[in-house]
Design a protein around this nucleic acid. Structure first.
Length: 602
RNA sequence: GCUCCAAUAGCUCAGUGGUAGAGCACUCCCUUGGUAAGGGAGAGGUCAUGGGUUCAAGCCCCAUUUGGAGCUCCA
């Protein structure tokens, strides 16, 4: 957001961060202060505190901040020398480090850019508090609405000084600030909404998956309804890929360590894999990626240019030893299934084939209504050593990706350091309701693994030539993708995807038999249905079905049994009234066949 | 991995040192009700695990395990 930096909201948040630091020092005078910038939806300030903060501290700090704001104090700026700055902050070691770095012109926070030595230092002062800061700030605290800020809405958390895990861990207090109380309320509502949609909560409510320490952390167990959802997605992609000329393959869950030494994966990702398994003098790895296996399948046959592209696809389950603190529901797990495929193409085919893959991914996203995404071209970090292959191959691969995006009219931006170790890639990054970003689909161009594995095809002139590989996964991982669409739909999946598409609600026990005959007809038509034979009354059964986000409730009593109808109620409370069974079957089939996002057409 | 917070019934949670609780779900009984939760009874717990303090521990302390919020990381 280029318009954000320097905007009035930005100044409000930056200034509120300073006021928070003042309030924290008022509460705990021995606190060491670090830095406090504005961020996307608020601000934070990092502190080294003399003791842990309590809820009472947080409330006191928030109240104190409002008090300071209501005093209508000015923010004043003043240029200072390094000596003066060091004198002012002699008891503040983090500030001293910042000042010395600024003066010396060392690396910035990311360690990337060498910053020129600062030609001046500035202090900003409000009330009793002075901070080293380049600004900008509001002129007076009257520009900040005390009723549009909050620091108690979110718990403080740990954060490393300068983002370096080898350095002091500080306490980060988050705050949020807006221009009006209404905006603050909107924001807090959005946070509540995100909690409501949390896939871990919805997954429990809809009975989709579970975790247990006895199986292991980060290892999801898919329950019948979750597995149905997953299977439906898989079948859809599998069928779509067959239409696009992909060929199915199946490979084992472990592989000889030498396979990953040849591919070059092992040394790079040693730390994030399960330890090798030793059997009979040989070492095996739980499969951390599918590429080398697919490569060996390609290599097992002689290929003619006439047969290319060869597109090998597998829902391949892989295991990666993610740091324990990284695990999160379905979106970061230690065992997951990649909707993987590797395309072996001639250099001439690369561009067209890459574009086809991108179109396939776009088609998949559009079908699900996932429209809020951006495309990122990830290229090498020129300063890093972690990449394999020659400069010219990288150059070729990167320009192929960029050319494909240009020709498709796909807006993208290029980021250094986001490439895979063997080649550059195009990622589709989805933004969810909380504006969090998730990497979903990925397409990678690879000249290096064909080289390392000495892959070949026979060209028109009879010579052996090297193919180019495209790695791609539209969902990324089934687990993460499902986690994200659970939150996207808040559990209310489109009809074609819903694990249970319709629930029969017999009004009395007399009507159960009729419900069973209706259910049998719907199942015969390929629908996923349930009968609620529970003891609850109709109202209770409706409430239960709504909780579970089941698209259609078919209520049936004596009148329906006599007339051969079902009374259709939708999960969004629309009531379609009684209709013949055949009419309902064609209604639901229409929605399924068109993969509609709506419950009724038109 | 690090900091902080947490762990009580299948689920959501109450319980501040003195006999283990509620709602939902489950089983049984009554109720057979036409569009957002009928009534009653019952069953279900080594209060995460292991140590410690105490006359006495779900509650206090230590360790471990697992979960959460962040940080760092993410092929």
């Amino acid at each position: 957001m280029p318009d954000y930096v320097g905007s009035q909201l930005y100044k409000i948040r930056h200034s509120t961060a300073h006021i928070m630091a003042q309030a924290v020092l008022d509460r705990l005078p021995n606190t060491k202060i670090a830095i406090g910038p504005p961020i996307e939806d608020g601000f934070y300030y990092d502190f080294e505190l003399p003791r842990a903060l309590t809820d009472e501290d947080m409330q006191w700090i928030e109240n104190r901040m409002k008090e300071i704001m209501r005093k209508n104090v000015d923010f004043t700026v003043r240029e200072v020398t390094a000596e003066e700055a060091l004198g002012q902050f002699q008891d503040q070691p983090y500030k001293v480090e910042l000042i010395n770095d600024l003066v010396a012109g060392r690396v910035d926070d990311n360690g990337n850019e060498i910053a020129a030595p600062a030609d001046k230092l500035t202090f900003y002062t409000q009330d009793t508090f002075t901070d080293l800061c380049r600004g900008p700030h509001v002129v007076n605290t009257r520009e900040i609405n005390p009723d549009a800020i909050s620091v108690t809405y979110k718990k403080p958390a740990g954060a490393y000084w300068r983002g370096d895990e080898n350095r002091q861990q500080l306490t980060r207090i988050y705050g949020t600030a807006w221009e009006s109380p209404e905006q603050l309320q909107d924001y807090l509502f959005r946070l509540e909404e995100a909690k409501r949609r949390d896939h871990r909560v919805v997954g429990e409510k809809l009975n989709l998956f579970t975790f247990t320490p006895l199986v292991g952390k980060g290892l999801p167990l898919w329950k019948p309804l979750g597995a149905t959802l997953r299977d439906t997605l898989e079948r859809w992609l599998r069928d779509t890929q067959i239409e696009h000329g992909y060929l199915p393959v199946v490979t084992p869950h472990i592989g000889n360590l030498n396979l990953y030494r040849t591919s070059g994966h092992y040394p790079y990702y040693k730390d994030s894999q399960y330890a090798p398994i030793q059997v009979d003098e040989e070492e095996f790895l739980l499969k951390p990626m599918n590429c080398p296996h697919h490569i060996m399948i390609y290599k097992s046959d002689m290929h003619s240019y006439r047969d290319l592209p060869v597109r090998l696809a597998e829902f391949g389950t892989v295991y990666r030893y993610e740091q324990s603190g990284e695990l999160h529901g379905l979106t970061r797990v230690r065992g997951f299934t990649v909707d993987d495929a590797h395309l072996f193409v001639t250099p001439e085919q690369l561009l067209a084939e890459f574009k086809n893959v991108v179109k396939l991914i776009q088609q998949i996203f559009n079908t699900l209504g996932l429209t809020d995404f951006r495309a990122r071209v990830g290229i090498r970090d020129p300063k890093s050593e972690k990449y394999v292959g020659s400069d010219s191959l990288w150059e070729k691969a990167s320009s192929a990706i960029i050319q494909a995006c240009d020709e498709l009219g796909l807006p993208y931006h290029v980021e250094e350091g986001e490439a895979a170790f063997y080649g550059p890639k195009l990622d589709f990054i989805f933004r969810d309701v909380l504006k969090r970003e998730w990497q979903l689909g990925t397409v990678q161009v690879d000249y290096n693994l064909p080289e390392r594995f000495e892959l070949e095809y026979v060209a028109e002139d009879g010579t052996r030539q090297r193919p180019v590989m495209i790695h791609r996964a539209p969902f990324g991982s089934m687990e993460r993708f499902i986690g994200i669409i659970i939150e996207h739909f808040a559990g209310a999946f489109p009809v074609w995807l819903a694990p249970v598409q319709a629930v029969m609600i017999p009004i009395t026990d007399r009507n159960v038999e009729y419900a069973e005959s209706v259910a049998a007809q719907l199942k015969a038509a390929g629908m996923r249905v349930e009968i609620d034979k529970g003891k609850a009354r109709m109202g209770g059964k409706i409430a239960a079905a709504r909780e579970r986000m089941i698209p259609y409730m078919l209520i049936m009593g004596d009148r329906d049994a006599a007339a051969g109808t079902v009374s259709v109620r939708l999960r969004d409370d629309r009531d379609l009234g009684a209709m013949p069974i055949a009419q309902f079957v064609s209604l639901i089939q229409g929605q399924v066949d068109s993969m509609s996002l709506d419950l009724v057409s038109g």
